[in-house]
Simulated assay, not measured.
Amino acid sequence: MMTNSIHERLYRTDLASFTKFAFHELSPQYDLSTGWPVDVMADALQGCLDRGTKRLILNAPPRSLESHCAAIAMVVFALGWDPTLKITVVAGTRALAVELQRRALALMRTPRCRALFPHLRPTVTPGEIVLPHGGGILYRAVGQSLIGRGADLIVIDDPIAPHRAQDDAERAGVNAWYDAEIVPRLNDKAGGVIVLVMQRVHKDDLTAHVRKSGVWTEVVLPAIALNDEAWRLHHRRPILRRKGEPLLPDREGKATLIAVLHEIGAYNFRAQVPTATIAGAGARARGLVLGTTAARLAVGMPIGGAFRKIREIDTILFEVFGVGEPPPYASEAPYGDAEWEARAIIQQQRLVAEAQADRHRQEA
């Protein structure tokens, strides 16, 4: 049993401390190592419980403990505060929903957690944890109906897999499901809380979709910092992260991330570095030979290469890791996508005109 100590008081009142406590309770064989990302995520999540944050997005690469922070530690902590709360956790798959329920239940049943919150006496059915005070957690998968079930807090965890996000119909289906099923399920439309936890998987994924519908607080933790970052947390010292620093240096340092980039390719790697800068760089690299519209102009036209084709991996290696030579566009003024496309069209039109002129001269 746990004695009445400063640690016990912290675990009961501070979500970051409880989140680390919960990790060690559930996974004592693992070292949490660098804990500052947990502090950042937990601070934002605590804002949903006591500082008035109603909509929160957490974007982080896979295996960054974002699910543990939001869908396990926070929901148990919230019920420890108020066992009448009705919480819904929605996962991208039924298997993930089952696993999240299993881990939350395991945490509630550990002796040390029971000492902290003795009123958490769960009754369990498939897909649901119910408490004697009336609160509990409902677990569902994306796409399942929530008709008849209200919630004070809704957590959405990894709503779509990266490979499914490339299918326009699949992606649109997830976004439509959110509109139809999530906000209407809040018991208090003004005061209810929604937390979206996911890695970025597409420019039109659920993160992009919900941004259009209201004001969201966003915490974005890329796998490696593209700029200096400063995180100002409540009741903790500010956290500084320098450009080029990995998110989890003990587990995924620069060398490991570069190896992952080569193994999974640039497209999938961009989900781990969720920034507009890299998405824009990738688009320019793919369009450096021909923009998409310019490519349509060039069908059937035998044109010599005016541009050197750049691998997107090489662009990311230079812009993120500082490895290799700068791409040709690096010394030019940065363009938005529309201006880049317009310049690509003009350049391609010039190349087409030159090719046609050469052909006419040869025929003459």
Rank of each mutant, 00 (worst) to 15 (best):
A176E: 12
R149H: 08
H202K: 02
Q199A: 15
V219I: 15
L226V: 11
R171C: 07
Q166V: 12
I194W: 13
Y139V: 02
Y139C: 06
G173S: 13
L131N: 00
I137T: 02
Q144W: 01
R211C: 08
I154E: 05
H119M: 12
I156N: 09
H163K: 14
A161S: 11
E229V: 02
W216Y: 08
D179A: 05
I194E: 04
I156T: 10
V195H: 01
R185W: 03
S145W: 05
D168L: 07
W177E: 12
I182A: 13
C113A: 14
W216M: 12
A230Y: 08
V210G: 04
S213Q: 09
L240M: 06
P159M: 08
G244C: 07
H119C: 02
V155L: 10
H163I: 14
L153W: 01
G148H: 14
G127W: 04
R114I: 03
H234W: 06
E181R: 10
L196D: 09
G143H: 01
H234Q: 14
V197M: 11
A169H: 13
R242H: 12
A165I: 13
K203I: 15
H234E: 09
I194Q: 04
R241I: 09
R112Y: 07
E128R: 04
E128I: 02
I137H: 00
R237T: 03
R237M: 11
V215Q: 08
R164S: 14
H133E: 08
D179M: 12
P126W: 00
R185D: 07
G127M: 09
R140W: 05
G173M: 05
E170G: 09
R114H: 06
I137V: 04
A223W: 10
A208E: 10
G214M: 13
G244L: 12
K243T: 11
K212E: 15
D168S: 13
P132T: 00
T207L: 05
D152R: 03
T217R: 14
Q199P: 11
A223T: 12
T217S: 09
V174S: 13
E229C: 14
N187C: 03
C113E: 04
I137P: 03
H163L: 04
R112I: 02
T207Q: 11
D157P: 11
Q144Y: 01
R237I: 07
L146R: 02
D158M: 13
I182W: 02
H119I: 00
A208S: 08
E218P: 02
R114G: 12
I156L: 11
K212M: 06
W216S: 04
G214V: 02
P118H: 15
E181Q: 05
L226Q: 06
A161M: 08
R112F: 05
V219G: 08
W177P: 15
V174F: 09
G214I: 03
R140P: 10
L196T: 09
A223N: 06
V210F: 06
R200M: 03
T123S: 13
I160P: 15
H133S: 06
G134Y: 00
L146F: 00
N227Y: 14
T217P: 13
R171L: 07
R237D: 15
N187M: 15
I154N: 01
L196H: 12
G173A: 09
Q199K: 12
D179W: 01
L153D: 10
